[in-house]
Amino acid sequence: MAAPKKAAASTAQDKTDGGSPPEFTREQELKALRDMLLIRRFEEKAGQLYGMGAIGGFCHLYIGQEAVVVGMQMALKPGDQVITGYRDHGHMLATGMEANGVMAELTGRRGGYSKGKGGSMHMFSKEKHFYGGHGIVGAQVSLGTGLAFANHYRDNDNVSVTYFGDGAANQGQVYESFNMAELWKLPVIYVIENNRYAMGTSVSRASAQQDFSKRGASFNIPGQQVDGMDVRAVKAAGDEAAAWCRAGKGPFILEMQTYRYRGHSMSDPAKYRTREEVEKVRHDQDPIEQVRNRLLAAKVSEQDLKAIDAEVREIVNASADFAQHDPEPDAAELWTDIYR
């Protein structure tokens, strides 16, 4: 690894791994709380609607991982692109996409972001620079690298934030992309959401190198492990990685250590881990509780926090209402958007 990069990688490490990350201002804490709550409540509602049969197919909930997208988004600027896999509802809400449009896509209605044609796994927003929503594990990594290629080609200062899972990190195209990204110094932040499991397979059963921050080492890509349950740590790491990319130094890898509370998808009986394991993370590390507790300690009133929860619930309930009453797409839509 080239010397300057090593330095950059280890400074970042010092900041987040040792001691606590830089404090948030009260404003930042409140924003993080609200944005994470929105995702949490939205996902709970989606799970409920699935149980009722209003949502079909695969539905992968993001509950537990909220700090990752919210913290990263706080490190981005307008114009930066985001791309991810199928566990994508949180990413979309974090980029500012409307709850109504996301929920209506989940129910397959015309008001959904893909007019009901994509479903839970496939939504996009040109306006918010959200490039999907991809169902094939690992495919978004090459695509995200392509977004960075376009930034480089156009010589702008946008960064591509390319999210993928610990399981996806074993796909071959990830490493083909890593090589080209470093070779051509493409501005891409690879955010590996290590939630410890790929479906029923724990990281230790699938990965020879379990430190994902080192996955770029043979390509000289710097990497860093981040406490993905602490939104402040995520933001700090995101800031550093984005600065690295914008300075023209090439890609950066962030391993977000996080956890999904629910099953892989709705039909996962989750027998590969104990209930106690889930409970322990929920109890000790919940990303939302962490912020809430800090705010309470800083003398923000319960009342004020309840108001945020109420505001979020209203958005989510309204989206569920919209998503159930919005009509299905017109039959003619079957034949549109195949070519243009």
Binding site: G108, R109, G116, K117, G119, E328, A331, E333, I338
Partner: peptide, 8 residues
Amino acid sequence: PMPYAANL
């Protein structure tokens, strides 16, 4: 391509 919406 296969659409998601139930009717489609």
